[in-house]
């Protein structure tokens, strides 16, 4: 049961973003900019950053939702599973492996990001903007994970729920839309 009274048909983050619209607006806006805006990182790569951070924070709702979104964008499920279980051997670029390691460091603490790993990312071709966006996406998902679990919002167990949510965030993005919040 959530720690505060939330709309029952809106589990996880969805009910929290409806609970207070004035705080939800800039959070949605930032997410849309970072995950759907123009970038040299693909949308799938950015969803993978969101997924590894959520998994590091053991936030089941966010991990399942962003795994679904990454899988839909990639058209397969193997990459995300490999990134979560065995990053070294995952079918992503060497640059992406280091950016995902930076994201994992950020998940633990900002101070965990060493000059050495940043240098490694740059050597593999990561731009300043890509490093910036990786750190900010990782930081943003620490907000989401702590918000979702800190208020004990509901985590649906049905995989179909996350498939539907993944489709919505891939096709419609992160801004508030009546379809995202309507009662079933």
């Amino acid at each position: 049961m959530p720690h505060i009274s939330l709309e029952e048909h809106l589990p996880g983050i969805t009910g929290l973003l409806e609970y207070r619209l004035d705080t939800a607006y800039p959070i949605r806006d930032l997410t849309q900019i970072l995950l759907r805006g123009e970038s040299t990182l693909t949308q799938a790569e950015r969803e993978l950053i969101a997924t590894v951070v959520s998994a590091g924070n053991e936030c089941k709702f966010c991990t399942a939702a962003h795994t679904a979104a990454a899988d839909i964008l990639l058209g397969e499920c193997n990459t995300t599973q490999m990134v979560l279980q065995d990053l070294e051997n995952a079918p992503v670029s060497d640059k992406m492996k280091v950016l995902l390691q930076i994201a994992r460091n950020v998940q633990v603490s900002g101070k965990r990001v060493s000059p050495e790993i940043i240098e490694k990312a740059k050597t593999l071709g990561a731009t300043d903007l890509e490093i910036h966006d990786t750190v900010l996406i990782a930081s943003l998902f620490c907000l989401y994970n702590k918000y979702v679990d800190g208020l004990a919002s509901i985590t649906p167990s049905d995989p179909a729920f996350y498939q539907t949510l993944g489709n919505k965030i891939v096709n419609q993005g992160y801004l508030r839309s009546p379809q995202l919040i309507k009662k079933p």
Partner: peptide, 8 residues
């Protein structure tokens, strides 16, 4: 905090 310290 992570944004500020993660980018040094």
């Amino acid at each position: 905090n992570r944004y500020v310290d993660g980018l040094g």
